[in-house]
């Protein structure tokens, strides 16, 4: 299996990293760049998927938080400081040409990552994402162009969960959200969690190493 490139954008606003992924997706599509994983931490922002129900956002119009309508799948979600956002830009022809497989694989990466932190996380039947008990900890939304992916998943590490109060994340009304910090009771080192993600990613996607 090809080696995968790691790109850590650090702290970057949504708009810029969005443009960055789009450009990278194009490069991967024409074989100009190897499959990559982008890590980024965003400013507070709400994003919609293309078929999101706008009524799931309940904030007032004068809220200072930016809202973006994106081309990914899935419902509304929140990104912000303390949350690891991971955008794998992969040509699924190098892995498996299946949307279902890819989404379950991303879930597996999050579950394995949390296992390394001694947190037992699970899937919920019919609901994409990763859950700890009845609270969502990892959210997913993906866009594909000719089997090349963009967008990906967000994992709440030290996220300020109050921002989720104003939305119905992913349109799921019955369950809450949680974070690693909330579960463990201590703020976590983001770079360590990123390492865990990469180790789990290597395992799930059968990757030998990173560049």
């Amino acid at each position: 299996m090809n080696r995968i490139k790691i790109i850590d954008l650090g702290f970057l606003d949504y708009k810029n990293s969005w443009n960055y992924q789009k450009e990278l997706q194009k490069k991967v599509l024409i074989g100009d760049c190897s499959d990559s994983i982008i890590f980024v931490e965003h400013d507070s922002v709400y994003t919609f998927g293309k078929n999101s129900d706008k009524s799931n956002l309940m904030i007032s119009k004068d809220s200072k938080i930016k809202i973006y309508e994106t081309e990914r799948g899935g419902e509304i979600t929140y990104h912000g400081p303390g949350q690891i956002v991971c955008y794998p830009i992969l040509n699924l022809k190098n892995f498996k040409q299946s949307v279902t497989w890819y989404m379950r694989a991303l879930e597996e990466v999050i579950i394995e990552t949390l296992k390394l932190l001694n947190i037992k996380a699970t899937r919920k039947d019919g609901l994409t994402g990763v859950w700890v008990k009845d609270e969502k900890i990892g959210a997913q939304g993906v866009r594909m162009t000719k089997w090349v992916t963009m967008h990906g998943f967000a994992l709440n590490v030290n996220t300020d969960l109050r921002f989720f109060n104003d939305i119905i994340p992913c349109g799921i009304k019955d369950f809450g959200v949680t974070s690693i910090e909330k579960i463990i009771g201590k703020e976590q080192d983001l770079s360590l969690v990123k390492e865990h993600i990469l180790i789990s990613f290597a395992k799930v996607f059968n990757i030998k190493g990173y560049i």
Binding site: K50, E71, G73, V99, M103, T128, Q140, V142, R143, T145
Partner: peptide, 15 residues
């Protein structure tokens, strides 16, 4: 690209 479809939480552009 002719159209876009949605499945699960993935939106795909179809050529």
């Amino acid at each position: 690209i002719l159209l876009e479809i949605g499945t699960d939480k993935v939106d795909s552009e179809i050529p």
